[in-house]
Nucleic acid binder design. Structure first.
Lengths: 316, 316
DNA sequence: CATCTGATG
DNA sequence: CATCAGATG
């Protein structure tokens, strides 16, 4: 596979963007869009850049659906993405790395030498996360600290001065919803308990693929997906009770009520071209810092995975 | 993958050859070539075409290493190969088709409507053979008629007026030679018994991937492969006792003593470019018709598989 | 270094 | 329609 390489003028220079240029934000692909819903368009809906004297941190999150495959993609460059987006921390999900692969790939972006990886030990080449940071975290922990839930490498936490950053890949409920009850009653609950525990000492940020489109606005065909993994009532309710009701704010939705912004499009049937997607990737933050979220954004034009990256600019 | 498409002038017309142009015949890749050995070169070593008044049949055999992959190869056309080589019957091995795939692919070459397929039922997507013929055979049988050996779809026999044509894919002895004894004591023996049985009524032709390089001349590095599947003493001896000593003639070797002609080059390490190969594919014929073998040849320039096609022109 | 399957999403 | 693994050659 080759990612379509698009040449664009950035700051007066011609650069090759290591992206697939689909412009999904031009399309609102809802079966019955409610009145007032509009498509997310990063070109018009992002606030102006912060000035240099404002202290802030830029976080990015991306489910890469296999990091080795992404890095092999012709035209893709992690360094270029880092330079263009200028993030301080990059959180990856579904790296699908084995522990033996991590050593080779560990320092994939120059200048980001603090990297922390989880790998599934139960199923090889499955799941996996990474936190890749410019600055050294105060501490790092892997998993939930509950060995029952930690064999699939789904969570890594980095502690920074003013917050804990959790990078999670929530279990998919699977075909036939065979893992739905585990996912909702065990994983979501354990994760939110863990977050509440951490919150006692510092604000918490949870990012990653939470494998749930919360409301009808977050999925292109709500009616047709009521029993699809990621949009069951059980998962949506769990999202509400475990995360939102316990004091974590969905930063994109707070910033953009009534805006349709997807972060995932299945590979099958060219759903990305017609913007038939789901919003599965989030930045949730403790209520106490929700007002510091300056911009919670989506980069729907970055290809190479069935998910696109999302970002959060947090004022400090 | 793309096969390198080569344009060449054939009969005054420019045609795109659906082939990988490697010219292995220019190289004699023997560790210690014995005096007098020369590389096979189809451009200089093939006899002149038979005139139109001579009755003959043209048989071709090819281990395609996955027929669906071959057909998907950009630049490959089965019809073009058929037109260029003008064979009457094409025998394939390692089609790797499942029974459910056969229906779609069955009539892959216009004008060759008599097609007969075997598929492995024990291991899906493994082994498999086909006979694809312009003329309708008098009868067809699948397998050896011994159910123990017939679950892997390794043999198909077509009866024509003046011979039986057997198309076989002999079991590989495997890593660690774990199947060596089965292959030699069961398969080779059963196959040659079956051939002798058929021979009572008509001459027999066996073609296909016999998974054995018979003599040192048939492999680029004999010393290094004494315990490799396909060149063990056991397999070589079995080739001699089961086939040659029982009255079947290796037509290529009889026509070309002292000529190094390979039909297989492992994908690893670019062995094809340096002509480091094996001769694993054969046309063996009953002694009674050996003198009618006008040309037993190899087409080392046809790519798309780790084996190349071989052919036999048999006068009738 | 290819093919295939089968699991997973 | 992608990723990955593992079997096979």
């Amino acid at each position: 596979r080759t990612s379509e390489i698009v040449t664009e003028v950035v700051n007066g220079d011609e650069v090759n963007l290591p992206i697939v240029k689909t412009e999904p934000w031009t399309i609102l692909a809802h079966k019955k869009p409610q009145k007032g819903w509009i498509p997310y368009n990063p070109r018009t809906m992002r606030p102006p850049p912060l000035t240099r004297d404002t202290k802030y941190v830029k976080l990015m999150s991306w489910n890469v659906n296999g990091l080795r495959a992404l890095l092999k993609l012709e035209g893709f460059s992690a360094l270029q993405l880092a330079q263009r987006e200028d993030f301080d921390v990059l959180c990856l999900q579904e790296t699908k790395l084995q522990e033996k692969d991590v050593e080779e790939i560990k320092y994939l972006i120059d200048g980001y030498d603090n990297t922390f990886w989880t790998c599934s030990v139960s199923k090889l080449g499955y799941s996996g996360t990474a936190i890749i940071s410019r600055v050294k975290p105060l501490s790092v922990r892997y998993g939930l600290g509950i060995s029952d839930h930690d064999s699939e490498g789904r969570l890594v936490t980095a502690e920074f001065d003013s917050f804990y950053l959790l990078n999670g890949y929530v279990p998919n409920s699977g075909d036939g919803l065979k893992r739905l009850s585990y996912r909702v009653t065990e994983w979501d609950l354990s994760l939110s308990n863990y977050m509440k525990e951490l919150e006692k000492s510092k604000p918490v940020i949870l990012t990653g693929d939470l494998n749930c489109a919360h409301e009808e606005i977050d999925i292109f065909n709500p009616a047709g997906n009521k029993r699809s993994a990621g949009f069951t009532d059980e998962e949506r309710k769990s999202f509400g009770t475990n995360f939102l009701s316990r004091g974590f704010v969905d930063t994109f939705r707070r910033q953009h009520p009534g805006v349709v912004g997807y972060t995932y499009w299945g590979y099958r049937h060219g759903l990305r071209k017609t913007n038939k997607g789901w919003r599965l990737d989030y930045f949730l933050v403790s209520e106490s810092i929700a007002d510091k979220a300056y911009d919670s954004y989506i980069l729907p034009d970055v290809g190479g995975s069935d998910h696109c990256p999302i970002g959060l600019i947090l004022k400090l």
